[in-house]
Design a protein around this nucleic acid. Structure first.
Lengths: 213, 213, 213, 213
DNA sequence: CATGAATGAGAGTTCATTCAT
DNA sequence: TATGAATGAACTCTCATTCAT
């Protein structure tokens, strides 16, 4: 049993080693141009070994997303777990959680957003795909709880909470990708944090129920 | 000279024919998996012919974006040109303009958002790249004028107008991509229009200056 | 009849125009990399037109050689036609004739030597091939007469005259190609003329019959 | 370390296997018409494998030349190393050395002469190119020593020794190529050996210093 | 005769993946 | 488990040549 466990741990460590290498290579070269050999070299392994740990290139790529989605979910659950916060404060926490996720690994995050709406998604094993689906759903639901609370307290406008989740998530990914895009186009300074702040503030203000009108 | 013109028109028609085929193929197979031969077949032309009209695959791909960016810019300019509108009404028009752009060609729009933050961007000819840059910039600036007006009238909060533009644009692309993503993941119904409506409403409400706080 | 002739002349002029363009392009780009379109552009014609005058690329290439072979033959015949020369003087004239041929068009000459021992030779129409053969043969035979004379006078060693022709021709082509090669390898100055002079002198001295040994 | 060595040997054997196949295919089809797939088939390998051993088609082609140039240099050095020979005897040895090189591999030799004055030369990696340059230079210099000796002994005419080397080399290549050419043109019997003999004799006689004139 | 758009076969090359060791 | 040489399918792109106008 101890042996079994140790083996498992070692296996997991190897996986991590490969993923770290893959992340670096994907970030520098992009998914298409990065070759399995590049990644193998970066990981100081042989190409064949990669296939002992990942079914294929797509799965390796997708696995990167999985990690950050897990991190996201944990962060979101922390937000919800904090006691005695008003929904407004929680949105503030949400913003920080998301920026944390971004800072945790900007490159993977961008990778993930790319994957998210790409053809590659279709080639994944059903297991991996459903893991991704599950994590996404959980994250969105976790966010939704915040909005539900705000609505039931009467401080947020009355819309489906999940719609708010979707908008927040879309806004976050849109901003990250668009800032990345501007970076590639060599335009302007890195204003991600500032833009994100303002966007969240606008959102927070926008979903407030008010007595005007 | 009539001949000159006719030839030009025919050339342009061919280009369109190829772009239409390319759009279809890219949408079904995605950029990487779509081959030039696929596109040629779809266009009922030979592979070589494609290269008479587009320098390479990347440029063909990017050219699709160009058209929709042009359409976007025109629509945005129309919004600005309409007289006697309050900034609030203009944001409403903005929403419609963007939804129009989406409906004009959803597939191309998704293609464009993909391109926008991808490695492919780097391989374009400088001319094409700067055309894209130019159109993006113009669109953002055109939007910014609306916000400027609202700020100077004192109805919008005091932030850089271009930041608003960026957020709107990011939000729009984020929602389109995320809905596309959900479509691929076979989840849920197509709620793009509804989500977009709500998102714009929240945004519009969120940038209003108010006397609270 | 006059019309017939004029047409023929015009046709010939067009051929020349194309050959001049082809020569330039082949010289700059080499046979393989030069495209028919390049040549057409240089000749200010359309690609299709080239095929009205030359069966294909190989034939166009070979036709260039034909011209210089014709020039060579004429020069050699002149050498032979000059009266009252000793064979030794005629070898001197031979040297000058060959250097003339080189100067007439160094690029075509190199082209021709390339063609001469290449695969392309096999793809020519039988007519063109036999024209080339005929011209080569005539040139060698013309040279051979000089040597024959020298041998019968008892001033040259007794070998087959045609062998001398072959050696002279091989030596000439070898030197031209090797100097070209050194030019490509960026080595050393252009010493073709000097090398050629010395080579011919050695040859002339070497075929002299003498009483030593 | 035994493993290391064995691998190295096997790698070298593979290279040889590919080169042997390449030589055959290039000889039959010529450089341009020979495809990498042809060569792969001849070597009973897959196309991709060729690229594990040679950077590209040009380099594979050029590598063939390298071997024969190495062989040439060795043979030339042997000529120089033999003790107690008069320069005249050494020229005789030179002739034999060169004929040996020809017989060692006529096809490769022709290939090399083709390469030597062709555009392909420019596409080689600098390393390979300078290897070729180096070997050529060494061979020419080695030959030059013979001539130097003869000159200093007063038996050869007083010209730059390297010029003699160049002429010998040009003559050799010229004869080989011209005989090849005649072979292609289906003319005459194979008289290479005889022609070479006579040419060398003439050369040897021609560079002798004499008291006549 | 001239055009030049279109062809389409075919090339070199890459690289995800496999499998004997 | 790890290797890495070998695979071979598939790609993009080129260009000699044709043919309707």
């Amino acid at each position: 049993m101890g042996i079994q466990e140790r083996k498992e741990r070692e296996r997991e460590r190897r996986r991590q080693q490969i993923m770290v290498a893959a992340k670096r290579v994907f970030s520098v070269k992009g998914f298409t141009k990065a070759t399995m050999e590049d990644i193998a070299k970066e990981a100081e392994l042989s190409p064949g070994t990669l296939y002992l740990y990942f079914k294929n290139k797509d799965e390796l790529y997708a696995s990167l997303s999985l990690r950050i989605l897990q991190y996201l979910l944990i962060r979101l659950e922390h937000v919800n777990a904090e006691p005695d916060q008003t929904p407004e404060q929680m949105i503030e926490s949400l913003k920080e959680a998301m920026y944390d996720v971004y800072e945790f690994d900007p490159l993977i995050l961008v990778n993930m957003f790319h994957l998210q709406s790409s053809e590659a998604l279709k080639n994944l094993t059903p297991e991996l795909l459903s893991e991704i689906r599950e994590l996404s759903r959980n994250s969105l639901n976790t966010m939704a709880k915040i909005f539900e609370e705000g609505i039931s307290r009467g401080t947020f406008i009355e819309k489906k909470p999940l719609t708010f989740s979707n908008i927040i998530w879309a806004m976050f990914s849109g901003i990250v990708l668009w800032e990345e895009s501007k970076r590639i186009l060599n335009e302007g300074s890195d204003s991600l944090k500032e833009t994100l702040e303002i966007a969240f503030d606008i959102f927070a203000e926008g979903i407030k129920k008010n007595e005007r009108g």
